[in-house]
């Protein structure tokens, strides 16, 4: 071996090619099949997409680095399932660009936090966590309630995701800013059209309380309330396993 290697060491191009060859194998074997094998992601009927408001909320979650303290991936371990709910399925993050599975739980897992608390709880908690949970070391996010939500570019957001294969219709793309507004203003004229596009199960309400403007808080709470509720597949599988 040293003899062969002595030769290899004399050619920088040869050496680089050897590195590329040797290093590529692992990734090719492990990653490429995930895009082709059908079993990687379950097919379920009821999986729905994020509404524009929820997507905007998700982007705030990304921007503020909530993922640095919260995972969204319940592992297939008994204690996790008992603490947080049915373990996470691949399909549940099918439309997550990027995924937010996380790697550190300074705070609890949030994969199934949707519906666990009221909107008011979330708003109070996000403004100052220690008002609600005195021992908490989570940061306060007061500015979310003050910042108006940016909606003018939401159509671009949906269009980009449509390009990537998320089943948004052209109509959804075109109406994204309006739909974002409508979701937090149930009495507005646009609300019905929004529900028609995204389904009757969509939460339509004033997430951050009644106000005249749509804030980043509305979006983030709308997102938190949908976590774990895009499909029932995980719950169905869990009850099937019990039986």
């Amino acid at each position: 071996m040293p003899e062969f290697h002595r030769k290899l060491e004399r050619s920088s191009i040869g050496f680089v090619l050897a590195i590329v060859g040797v290093a590529s194998i692992g990734g090719l074997v492990e990653i490429a099949p995930l895009f082709t094998i059908d079993e990687t992601v379950e097919t379920v009927e009821d999986m729905r997409v994020y509404t524009p408001l929820e997507l905007a909320g998700r982007n705030i979650y990304v921007r503020e680095g909530c993922y640095a303290c919260h995972s969204q991936m319940i592992r297939t371990l008994r204690d996790e399932v008992e603490r947080y709910g049915p373990y996470s399925l691949a399909v549940e993050s099918q439309y997550d660009y990027p995924m937010l599975w996380g790697s550190k739980r300074t705070g609890p897992d949030l994969a199934r936090v949707g519906g666990k608390y009221s909107d008011e709880w979330h708003v109070a908690h996000l403004i100052n966590p220690r008002d609600v949970v005195p021992e908490s070391n989570m940061p306060g996010y007061g500015w979310l309630a003050r910042n108006q939500l940016r909606t003018d570019d939401l159509s671009h957001h949906l269009a980009a995701m449509q390009t990537l294969g998320v089943p948004y219709t052209d109509e959804m793309v075109a109406n994204a800013p309006r739909d974002a507004f409508a979701q937090a203003f149930p009495d507005s004229a646009m609300a019905d059209a929004m529900v028609e596009r995204y389904g009757a199960a969509t939460n339509v309400r004033a997430f951050a309380g009644d106000r005249n403007t749509l804030t980043e808080m509305d979006a983030l709470v709308a997102y938190l309330q949908i976590l774990g509720r895009l499909t029932d597949a995980a719950h169905e599988q869990a009850s099937a396993e019990v039986e």
Binding site: D96, Y97, P98, M99, W101, A160
Partner: peptide, 20 residues
């Protein structure tokens, strides 16, 4: 995929388990 040339925001082309 950037959402437009005038925006800092982009979406990675991978989602969910493939992204992970």
């Amino acid at each position: 995929v950037p959402i437009s040339w005038g925006s800092a925001k982009s979406y990675t082309i991978y989602s969910g388990v493939q992204d992970a």
